[in-house]
């Protein structure tokens, strides 16, 4: 992709090399531009869109086991991105746990904690400290956060039964009521 630079050399040779060199140079220049364009589109598109299919993923849990698309099927899924080093995450930790306890027995609501760029030791300390019982796991190879194109932590995504993105929350929830209202709306949809 350094081709934009490679082109000069080609263009110098093409005097002798014929039209091929020049054509090649143009192809290289266009290839560079294409890559930049792809990246630019990515940068510009921002977060994932509401009411569109949410990314599918498989979460490997701290306590062993996995939760994949099969377990999420037909449920309202609350995906919370957090980290133990993230101060604002602590503000909503208890509320999330209370909300989970409220819905746990219904069976059609699933809370998932995705631990972003964190160490397992610290993460476990954090989970114990807030008594968090809903499934939590590390964001292996940061692939889940990349799929959701998160901009930071905490960030929460509510996915409807149909698998569409229902709501995006950037920053911490301010109250238990806020979470309950949103999940109820997602359930009612």
């Amino acid at each position: 992709m350094n081709e934009s630079m490679e082109s000069p050399d080609d263009m110098v040779t093409n005097k002798v090399g014929g039209g091929w060199g020049r054509a090649l140079a143009w192809v290289f220049v266009l290839a560079v531009l294409a890559v930049i364009a792809v990246q630019l589109r990515k940068t510009m598109e921002g977060g994932i869109l509401l009411n569109e299919k949410a990314p599918t993923f498989t979460l490997t849990l701290f306590d062993g086991g996995e939760i994949g698309p099969a377990e999420m099927q037909g449920k309202v899924v609350v995906v919370n991105f957090w980290a133990s080093w993230c101060k604002p995450c602590e503000e909503e930790a208890e509320e999330l746990q209370q909300a989970w306890e409220y819905y746990q027995d219904r069976g059609d609501v699933l809370f998932l904690g995705v631990d972003y760029v964190d160490t397992e030791t610290e993460a476990r300390v954090y989970l114990d400290r807030f008594g968090i019982t809903y499934p939590n796991g590390p964001d292996l190879r940061t692939s889940i956060s990349q799929a959701f194109r998160i901009t930071g932590v905490p960030e929460t995504y509510i996915i409807s039964r149909a698998g569409d993105l229902f709501y995006t929350k950037v920053g911490p929830f301010t109250s238990l009521q806020e979470i309950l209202t949103l999940v109820d709306q997602a359930l009612a949809e």
Binding site: N2, E6, D9, D10, V12, T13
Partner: peptide, 17 residues
């Protein structure tokens, strides 16, 4: 792989020239 190949190519081209 790419940069050394490209640089070598550049040197070759200039040498020929």
């Amino acid at each position: 792989i790419a940069p050394p190949v490209l640089i070598a190519a550049a040197f070759y081209v200039v040498w020929q020239m």
